[in-house]
Design a protein around this nucleic acid. Structure first.
Lengths: 199, 199
DNA sequence: GTCTATAGTCGGATAGAC
DNA sequence: GTCTATCCGACTATAGAC
């Protein structure tokens, strides 16, 4: 085959990928309001006009990174849990932590945007509100295997809250291992002997 | 007394208070980078130059709101715990929650700035890094009354993380009661019967 | 598809009048 | 103590050349 392109529109896809990478980093560091098209353009070696050709507008940047990424892997984890014979909440969280530990830039962006988007007028407010609601409501559709007497919804709310807060701590101090930090949290969240055999 | 001023420099203090209020709200909604001096000026009925007369620079705004407020009440709570005969971690958290439930604007600002300041180059990065570290290390100096076998440091890390995450959830959806939300979290964080008599 | 050029607005900060 | 005026730079977005 003389075709050196493994797939069509590869150059355009590369540009998009570069724009996504630069945007994830900048939204993480500076937030949506703090990020300028010029910064993204400089990072990927284009002019502002060049970037706008790809994303249409600044809000287009936001749609790009919110729609293209993050939740895909997490949703896969949830889907996998449904098919388990004996689904454990601790398993779900450990898998999420394992995935997130490998993508600090993405976690950084989501942490920053999540706080910025508390304001109802933020362009990503609804996205984060829906997301937060669905994380728990999706998880509530699984027939979790838990010790007698525990309130599953409360555990989920508490655990997701804890993970959000822990990720902030993880990102603030370099050199820490999220997996280890979560293991300590898990001991608190699902203490033995109460959760013995359930995690 | 013909002096209608109850204390000197009252007008200046009022201006400062108005600037603080407007800044807390704007930093919460838009973050530090997203806030303009013009916005603060309009809010308090001054021009940009007028605001700068009081705060010197945009970073002066930041110092003003970080130094003037938030941690004071929380530190008071910690100081009070030291003197208790039988200090309970759950008590500390309930008191913090009670205080924060009454000042959503301040909690909003701290949540937003805390995420924005993950970036080491953010002007408030060190402030938040120190603050986060000291919250746990201050608490570790108290002789907490806990059930046998619990790791106090892990509980503190987990609990503070959970509270940070919970406050984001609280602020995102209006009409919720932080105290109630925390009570549910407490049941998870310090489950009965293990923590019976310790909370 | 990417550029230059430009429009038009808004940013922080300073100088100096009152 | 607060204003007006002004500087200079950065911003988003558009138009049009190539």
């Amino acid at each position: 085959m003389s075709d050196s392109n493994p797939s069509p529109t590869t150059q355009t896809d590369d540009r998009r990928a570069a724009i996504i990478d630069a945007t994830v980093e900048s939204f993480g560091k500076l937030g949506y309001y703090g990020t300028s098209l010029q910064r993204i353009a400089t990072e990927v070696g284009l002019t502002k006009a060049g970037v706008l050709h790809y994303v249409g507008s600044k809000e287009g940047l936001l749609s790009l990174v919110l729609g293209e990424v993050y939740d895909r892997e997490t949703l896969d984890i949830m889907a996998a849990m449904v098919t388990e014979r004996r689904p454990l909440i601790a398993d779900m969280w450990r898998r999420i932590v394992t995935v997130n530990a490998k993508r600090p830039a993405l976690v950084h962006m989501f942490s920053t945007l999540s706080a910025e988007a508390l304001d109802p007028e933020h362009p990503a407010h609804d996205y984060f509100a829906d997301r937060e609601h669905q994380a728990v409501s999706n998880a509530m559709n699984i027939n979790w295997c838990v010790p007698d007497g525990v309130n599953v919804e409360h555990v989920l709310q508490a655990g997701f809250s804890m993970m959000d807060g822990l990720q902030l701590r993880w990102l603030r101090t370099p050199g820490q291992d999220l997996t280890t930090m979560w293991a300590d949290c898990e001991d608190v969240l699902m203490p033995l002997p109460m959760w013995d055999g359930y995690r």
